[in-house]
Amino acid sequence: MSSYHLDHLAYLETEAIHVLREVAAEFERPAVLFSGGKDSICILRLAEKAFRPSEIPMPFLNVETGHEFPELIEFRDRRAEELGAKLIVRTVDEAFEKGLATPTPGQVSRNQLQIPVLLGAIEEFQFDCCIGGARRDEEKARAKERFFSFRDAFGQWDPKNQRPEIWNLYNARLNPGENMRVFPLSNWTETDVWEYIKKEELEVPNIYFSHERECFHRAGQWLPVPPAHDANGKADPYEGARPSDQEEHRQMICRVRTIADMISTGMIESPAEDIDDIISEVAAARVTERGTRADDKASEAAMEDRKKAGYF
């Protein structure tokens, strides 16, 4: 590094730290959305860098569909505890019980149902800001997203009427009931995320690395076959997410490139055993990260439509 010049990761880091400190300074009740996925893992390290030696001045929030990878839940809980943070979990099942959400007939995926759960949690805890790990390079509707993304009292994003974001001067002003979503990794790419994980020696859930798993083929994706029983012995906890007799299934050497829940996450065949392997694999990849996300395949505007309704 030349003496007074930052390389690209150091630049992205200082930008994200600045954004996180703006959130801490400008909002009354912010929260960090922490799923245990690779992007939110970076957010937590950035939060340590922004706020240490103080505690991270905001709780972590996660919305569960009920179809999560068990490895991810275990990692999420452990990481939150290591950091001494308060972790709030709200689930789609609870939302059914409370009447906040209703199951969609014929729809196995609960991806859309995360929206009312998230909006419910924002209301319950009066969060005025939620920090997310979304990146603009993920998807073309997200490419139009701001660092500080305003949501009205219904949680809606209005892409045609966004606040101009000039220099590093973020307008954080809200009226009661309104909400901000803030994305410190806006300018990061998938490669940047993995390079940062490597540089910072961050632990990630083991499902990002190559392992053997039974998968089945549905709608162009290899989806993981979920376990037959959950931790409490309840049968078929991932109802409808198990392969039918007509669907091809086989053992695969595979990993996840991006994580939603088990119903929405396509596995990729991969021998990548460590971070360097993953970085090489991402560099050579010929499909985008979200190409393995069943939730994005609904239509060309699938992400735009969900974001307008209050999605992450």
Partner: peptide, 24 residues
Amino acid sequence: NLTDGLRAEREQGITIDVAYRYVA
């Protein structure tokens, strides 16, 4: 169409807002 990310843009063939892209 690679950069025009919103439905209205594709329909009207215009770019209505700042879009950010990443090239390495």
